[in-house]
Structures are given as structure tokens and as C-alpha cells.
């Protein structure tokens, strides 16, 4: 009991150091703390529960195998999430779910370059509204192509720069920029009813 308390109260940094010395219990605590985040990131890109589950487990196994290579340059959550992203991208590539899109195809999918996004400034919202907004964003993300969804997840949720995204998705920065633009446009069209409900 005391031992469990020691782990549950420890900071991530202390748990990482212990895990680097081979302490499996410390690693187990890290898994317990961050498993939702890891699974959630894989799911946000794959939109498949079973695949996301398997990728999340693979990410934790890789993390254990490479834990000694983690030097604390970023926080642990960022590190394990990056492992998850790389595994997910590799998986998508192996599954050949990424396709090469022409600008014309992207334009068509997003509803046209000239169509204006039907969104305005969002007013302050309470938790219930936020939950509903998240659900609607979730549904909208589900309707995007793998390419568009991935670029949005990496940019908006992970905060990666264009060149980082290009490196991970193995494409040019120009491709990242156009995918991001059309992904936002399509998403905005899918969420346009939010304007009526939450605009100032």
C-alpha cells in the first residue's frame, strides 16, 4: 500500500528516472497516468478503436524499450505522444490509407476555394456547451480524409510546425500548407451551424 502511494504521488520526472533504472512499477504508473492521452492521439488519427488500442500498446512497449534515451528535453507526455504519432503514421502508410491528392481534389473535397467559412467569433461557453462542441468537432473530424485529419491533429492539437509535420508525413511543406488550408475549410463547412448557436 505504501509502495503504491509512493508511485502514485511521484512526479513524472521521478517515475521516468526510476523506470530508466528498470523499475517496472514506476513505468506502470506512467502508463496509468497517460494511457488515455496516448490512446486518444492514436484514435484521433485512425478513428478505429481496435487499431488505436493496439497502436497505443505498441507505443508503450517502444517507450519502455527506449526509456533510457529520454533525456527530458521535452516532458514525458510529449515524448510518448510523439512515439504514438510516428507509429500511427507508419501504420497508415503501411495500410496505404494515404493517397496523393491533387489541388483540384482537395478543392472539391473542401467545398471550393471561394466558399467562405461560415464561422464567427465564438462566445464564452460553459462546460456543457464545450462538451457538445467537442462532440461535434469529433464527428466533423471523422468525416475528413486521413491526410486532412492528420495534418489538423498534428498542427492544432500537437502544435507542430509546418516543417515538423512535413518531415513526419514525408511530404513537402507546400503540401502541408495546402492540406491544412483545405482541411480547415472543410471542417469549417461541417461546423457552420455552430455559428448560429454560439456566435456573439
Amino acid at each position: 500500500m505504501e509502495l503504491d502511494k509512493k508511485y502514485s504521488e511521484a512526479k513524472d520526472e521521478a517515475l521516468v528516472k526510476a523506470a530508466q533504472k528498470g523499475d517496472v512499477k514506476a513505468f506502470e504508473e506512467l502508463v496509468a497516468r497517460h494511457r488515455d492521452k496516448v490512446y486518444g492521439r492514436a484514435f484521433s488519427m485512425l478513428r478505429n478503436e481496435d487499431e488505436a488500442y493496439d497502436i497505443s500498446q505498441e507505443a508503450w512497449i517502444k517507450a519502455w524499450q527506449r526509456i533510457k534515451q529520454f533525456h527530458g528535453d521535452s516532458n514525458f507526455t510529449t515524448w510518448i505522444t510523439r512515439i504514438t504519432i510516428n507509429l500511427t503514421l507508419d501504420y497508415l502508410r503501411k495500410q496505404k490509407r494515404y493517397k496523393v491528392e491533387s489541388i483540384e481534389e482537395q478543392v472539391e473535397e473542401s467545398g471550393g476555394v471561394e466558399r467562405q467559412m461560415d464561422l464567427e467569433q465564438v462566445a464564452p461557453i460553459d462546460e456543457l456547451e464545450r462538451k457538445e462542441i467537442r462532440e461535434r468537432i469529433d464527428k466533423a473530424l471523422q468525416q475528413l480524409s486521413y491526410e486532412h485529419r492528420t495534418v489538423l491533429v498534428l498542427h492544432e492539437f500537437e502544435g507542430l510546425e509546418y516543417k515538423e509535420i512535413a518531415k513526419r508525413m514525408k511530404c513537402s511543406i507546400g503540401t502541408v500548407m495546402s492540406r491544412l488550408f483545405y482541411a480547415r475549410k472543410k471542417l469549417a463547412n461541417l461546423l457552420k451551424s455552430l455559428k448560429r448557436e454560439w456566435k456573439k
Binding site: 486518444g40 464545450r130 462542441i133
Partner: peptide
């Protein structure tokens, strides 16, 4: 607006 909406409302 779109970028802000997404950044602040990542689905859980």
C-alpha cells in the same frame, strides 16, 4: 476562428 475553435476544443 477555425484554428482557435479546434485548439480549444480537442475531443476527449
Amino acid at each position: 476562428t477555425t484554428a482557435t475553435l479546434l485548439k480549444e476544443n480537442e475531443p476527449e
